[in-house]
Nucleic acid binder design. Structure first.
Lengths: 147, 147
DNA sequence: TCTTTTCAGTTTCTTAAAGAAACCAATCAT
DNA sequence: ATGATTGGTTTCTTTAAGAAACTGAAAAGA
């Protein structure tokens, strides 16, 4: 009755979800993007139980998404996004933009993501063709590879 | 000790994750994008327990991501993506592309997403400024709204 | 048409994971 | 030096996931 794992599927979606396909993993990453690095920061901001936070941080470190950094000369550890972790920003922003469009926020979206150079909101994310045109799901096809 | 819910957070990421922030919800959507519509299809393709599948489908229907369609003249129900569900394709493709880049697939990425018009692979997703430039996480800022 | 098989679940039960709380050693502030 | 905070671990309880058996409809076969 062992909890089903997706790690042996030959599919990038399945295997990625096996790593970050849960609420807390993604919420930890969300706060990491906001700048949180300390155990206590994640814990108090998220309201997650400490044993669960500990397990999730360990898991994210094991999978190369966070790096545990013990400051030189001792001190409390910090958890920093690796380059692989940073590249997950597309996932989080896709989630955020979907939520902005489809969830009734009492007073409009609570956070804007803006271009630091111009202060303007970033564009809605989209899948684009090689030449840059926006594609709908009907304009694309999932094509299994022959091996 | 009730499982912590994120639905009352004033954050689109948190509230979106409260709806689809679990492995099975996203795997069901993945297969829905592949064309699956029937209960038995999801069940056999995913290997998910039937009671869990039943609960997840109900949840996704309640949140307007799938629509349960009883065929005219009777017959077995089908679950179809709503327009809100279809808009989640950005999330799934962001997950897929991250996995393609960061997970060691024995024989390369198993599925290509190609533009049906050209047969070429779609471009890697990116966050773009209002004017269309690609932005890294360092080029953007999370700006809380005053209400 | 009658029978059999599949489908779409529901119910019951078991196991594993989430959460609360207490505990602890190391660090930090005073 | 003392007390408070941090970064956990351990133990225990509750909830959710998974297996399996069951059911009433629908579809397929004879």
């Amino acid at each position: 009755m062992t909890r089903t794992s997706l790690k042996d599927w030959d599919c990038s979606v399945a295997r990625t979800l096996d790593i970050i396909g849960d609420k807390w993993a993604l919420m930890i990453l969300r706060n990491a993007f906001f700048g949180t690095q300390k155990f206590s920061g994640f814990q108090s901001e998220l309201g997650i139980a400490k044993n669960i936070l500990s397990a999730r941080l360990k898991h994210l470190v094991e999978h190369g998404i966070l790096r545990r950094v013990a400051p030189q000369g001792g001190g409390h550890a910090r958890y920093k996004l690796t380059s692989a972790g940073i590249e997950l920003h597309t996932v989080l922003i896709a989630l955020l933009q979907w939520g902005d469009r489809h969830i009734g926020h009492p007073d409009g979206p609570p956070v804007d993501i803006v271009d630091v150079k111009t202060g303007r909101r970033v564009a809605p994310m989209a899948v684009r063709s090689h030449s840059g045109e926006t594609l709908t799901p009907f304009d694309m096809r999932f094509q299994p590879r022959r091996s």
